[in-house]
Nucleic acid binder design. Sequence first.
DNA 1: ACCAACTTTATTTTT
DNA 2: TAAAGTTGGT
Length: 905
Amino acid sequence: MTDFDESTPRSAPKPGSIAARAMAARGSQSPDYLAGLNPEQRAAVETTEGPVLVLAGAGTGKTRVLTTRIAHIVSTGRAWPSQILAVTFTNKAAREMKTRIGLLLGGQVEGMPWLGTFHSIGVKILRRHAELVGLKSNFTILDTDDQIRLIKQLIQAENLDDKRWPARTFANMLDAWKNKGLEPANIPEGDARAFGNGKGRELYKAYQDRLKSLNACDFGDLLMHPIAIFRAHPDVLADYHRRFRYILVDEYQDTNVAQYLWLRLLAQRSALQTATGGEGETDPFDDTGPRAIDDDPDAHDGMWDDEASPAEAAEGSPPAGSDDAGRAVDRKGQPPRINICCVGDDDQSIYGWRGAEVDNILRFDKDFPGATVIRLERNYRSTGHILGAASHLIGHNEDRLGKTLFTDHPDPDDPKVEVNAGWDSEEEARAIGEAIEDLQRREDHDLNDMAILVRASFQMRTFEDRFVTMGLNYRVIGGPRFYERMEIRDAMAYFRCVCQPADDLAFERIVNTPKRGLGDATIRLLHDYARARGVPLIAAAMQMVETEELKPKPRNTLRRVVTDFLRWSELLPNTKHTELAEQILEESGYTEMWQNDRSAEAPGRLENLKELIRSMEEYESLPSFLEHVALVMDTEQNAEMDAVSIMTLHSAKGLEFETVFLPGWEEGLFPHQRSLDEGGRSGLEEERRLAYVGITRGKRRVKIWFVSNRRIHGLWQSTIPSRFLDELPEAHVDVMEANTSYGGYGAGGFGAYGSSRWDGAAAFNEGAYKTPGWRRAQAAKAGFAEGGAGQPGGRGGDGWSGGRSREIDYDAGASGARAGRGHNQPARQGLGLHASARRGGPREIEGELVAKSVSTDQSRFDAGDRVFHLKFGPGTVALVDGNKLTVDFDKAGQKRVLEGFVESA
DNA sequence: ACCAACTTTATTTTT
DNA sequence: TAAAGTTGGT
């Protein structure tokens, strides 16, 4: 592929300039930025008019199409950058688009003001029209923490038991409703009744009222409020209609109903035909609000200063070359066509559980009649084998539009997708660790180009443990984020109180942090006082300390707090914000609190606070910093050191790596049992898409693993291979045979069973004791006495620093030679290993150390019996509890196991 | 108001 | 198992 940077002229023609127009009119000679696009990509870029759906498979140049399209629109004079609405889901995606457009347009055009996440654009709109939904333009945005505390108060206010009705649960329900665009009046009756003794709807209303009185909104409201405004105020909506000549949406398959409604309103409802997708009487598409959104551009003008497109604004006459295809911008009075371009991939829709509606993308052409649908199937990322495997797998899904990825460069020498079997998760981690070192040593493979993608984050731990003992650099991506840390939130709460004296939630958070002796009782009184007078807590506190209503001790403490805040507020306008922030943390005693804390995390927290102040440098004021943080809960992280990435499949979407390891392909884990239970067939399909996303992250090598034993919730479960393995095409897959002995028993294994360890275990499950696998397992018994089931080194290294990832850095080359390197060879078998008869739920085979109660249920074993266990070998029964045995194993120590998994010996 | 013992509950995550 | 949340005692 040609690089943009090289093919793009140093300085793009100024939009609207003669040069730009000339360029647009050039016709046959295409501008440089189009060079290097394949025909489909080019069509996606050049079809600027009318609704367009670009189905962009993994690795087909989706972002390139989006950015080039914007550059095209701008440099052909179709619109100013400020007339283009471009929405993404994540800040990261928005950032990337901004930089890439900057490169394309040669930096001559100011950054696009309407390129951002749904939420950040939502805030922008809402700040403009806040009063239309009863807010002030300086409203605050609650984070989940505040939200939950607020809900808890409401639940208590309703005299409900806040244990029976957890605030968190209600927060989730709220989120789901708002994702669907449902206001209190529209929520399904069943939902309303399901919470708080049928008070669901009342609570929702009370919650919204409370937000309004706090001049606050939650994330969902950033979409809900604009929708409400657009519906109730056609004049406002019409302004946006005139402004946004082109709309672009990234990752359209991830849009939820609210986002869909929001987009549909902006893209002009009146031109849309049908509204499908809602279920039942609470159809979100058919509720309140003015339906007719007929544009009436003459009713109001002057809101935007640049309503004409560059071409129109260009001096002189109407744009030259009126034959110039599809100039969308009509004269005033005629509603423009819908120039909406949605880019997405139905096969990568993995956020259904979060409210995403794959349906949005599946029915695009019904929503936007006459839509042009363009498929991008030419993949520039992966080998033919990887694409073949991924395509075949995803072919098992029914709900899809259907695409098949292909590559122009199939190479017979490319490695096939590998499937490996392991005994348990520790062996899996060990073998993957060895494979990584192998690649590093033999192929000079950068660790940065390798990733381990897991289904659930608990799987990460085994890898961390293993890599720590190996001294292998790794990086965990995801997990707790910087701005979600307690100390950061506390500090932010202080800042919020200073900038927003009405921010009660922030105030409540820190009145007694550090501990000042202002307990529940005092706060309750303060609350009542504030409520009675209808003033914010800080204001109430100010008044209250002048009265006799509080006992002298808390009164004086509270007075101190209040005067502190007053002082800081006065300093706000004239003090450098970073200095003020430091001063606040210092004078409030917050820093001191952590300095006096003797716990292990305290130094890290202080470090994080420093980092917080440091990151404030980039902003010009405290308020602007707060605004940023509310929406961008993300910090950039250093990619400097060479390290293997460990992350979930979800967070891997959009990334690519030379080599990808996919462990844990077992029924119950992947596909996850819960998806199956709760989502049925569509749940399974989403899991399959997740598998597809995983495989398509790999550029050259994809190595899949499954194990026969995994510890879940502290219990060992016997597992069977994922059905997805059966769905891989033999032609593109190698089934590997583990041939390792791991340098002896001490390393944790107890000898090699060969390729069929897992099928031995599976056979065991089904009671089919006569299979070859079982016989091998029996044979292994004999050799067991010599072996041991010791554990490899323990967990160490907790010195990871802030940010949204933790990293462990070892000196390069610290990992010396180890005994027993693993060698994998293709097995003789094909993929027919996983007979469907072996499928079934995972079974519990072993448990915790000590039984809690002894029941009198009969068991075929008694204390003192000698038994044999497939994983732990021979042992003596110490305790019988129903069907659970506590066994002292000769080599593995005392374990609790289900009796079905031991044999009399 | 604070800490220790007990119980509960364990996907996926952005804004 | 292990982390988080809750209860009950000081």
